[in-house]
Amino acid sequence: MSFHIVPRSTYFKVFAALVLLLVVTVLAAKVPLGVFNTPIALSIGLVKATLIVLYFMHVRYSPPLVRVFAAGGFLWLAIMFALTFSDVLTRH
């Protein structure tokens, strides 16, 4: 059985990035940017989630099939949001 061992230094670097992003997101929320606050907060969340998925959860080193299912859940969630909002945004 062969598998990839991610070196500990990678884990620490990712962790440092995550903490940095946490600080950024809290500070960004304090700056009044109107409608842009939420997209910024969600984008930072997305970056954090991606880092966790790729490195902590080893998807970067995983077989393609695992990547398909990792992405699949989010894709289906996007379908749910898109079609539900096709109603919510156009309802009177």
């Binding site: 079609l83 096709s86 109603d87 919510v88 156009t90 309802r91 009177h92």
Partner: peptide, 10 residues
């Protein structure tokens, strides 16, 4: 009560 637009899409 769903929007007509969404109804057409569906």
């Amino acid at each position: 009560g769903q929007s007509v637009y969404a109804g057409m899409v569906f």
